[in-house]
Design a binder for these strands. Structure first.
Lengths: 151, 151
DNA sequence: CCTTGACCTAAAGTTAGGTTTAGAAATTAC
DNA sequence: GTAATTTCTAAACCTAACTTTAGGTCAAGG
């Protein structure tokens, strides 16, 4: 025996570079689902290394954990994902990324226009276009203009 | 009299679309400095509308409040900023933006490579290049790989 | 003059994405 | 068989960027 009882959380952490606490947190967020050994400890599959790798990459691309969970749900549940499976969901990532780049480039164009006209004053400036404001991907619960203001 | 005693915080909020609480918060962060009327209430200049507009735009571009304060410090303190002054600091914003777009495009190239090879596995993948990881601009105090892991 | 609405401060709450801590149980190593 | 590691859970803490709340003051209208 002991040919393959699964990876412990510590080993998975070392293989991925993530903190043990982060891996537990991802589980709480539904991004990964280990099983438990008789003693109640988490055990992971080899494929989970790749899964967490994907999570880390997707984060760099600016996806939130719920968004990543959504993308990961595209993987087959009944078997270990193949390279083709990973390619498929990586394409989705690429689409997200393209959209973000596109948004930033439009923002840049608007800024160039504003630098040109020197306006930078609210109602006139293209930078206040609601479409652009809506998708600001900043951090935290920033009251994004367009949502209800105070009172 | 009453020709111009300055704007109240409520008026400034309406003109910019910001919440009153946000404007006070920005003051605490050193982004804006109103004076006080005899009763102790905040009074703002017309130019502060533009100042807050700039703050909002810079936030869309992903700058943090400290970074924005830094950029704003390039404005003249002794007089009302001219359109030229605004143009000058807007150029800095443009540089920030260019850099962010550049990073994302490099990330995209890496992803394309990875989709091609189907690896997506830690040590081989270009997406794990420390250079790219280092500058992840995500939100919050994320323990970015490369910093000391747990213990 | 008095009421209503705007404003004040300080402190606590919120979200995302985690980390840290505390105390206990399971594993591994010798 | 026991000591040293790991792991477990639950709860508290952290940052950024704000909002909400509580309790009180200021200003404007009638």
């Amino acid at each position: 025996m002991a040919v393959s009882e699964g990876l412990t959380i510590g080993v998975l952490a070392r293989r991925t570079g993530l903190a043990v606490s982060a891996i537990r947190y991802y589980e709480a967020q539904g991004l990964i689902s280990p099983w438990r050994n008789p003693g109640g400890q988490r055990r992971y599959q080899r494929a989970d290394i790749r899964r967490l790798s994907f999570v880390m990459i997707a984060q760099q691309f600016g996806l939130t954990l719920p968004e990543i969970r959504e993308v990961l749900s595209g993987l087959p549940g009944n078997r270990t994902p193949t390279p083709q499976d990973w390619k498929a969901i990586s394409m989705q990532l690429r689409a997200h990324l393209d959209q973000r780049i596109d948004t930033l480039m439009r923002l840049r164009d608007n800024l160039d226009g504003c630098i040109g006209c020197g306006c930078l004053s609210l109602p006139k400036c293209a930078l206040y276009n609601p479409d652009d404001r809506a998708k600001s991907h900043g951090s935290g619960p920033r009251y994004l203009m367009g949502d209800a203001p105070e009172a």
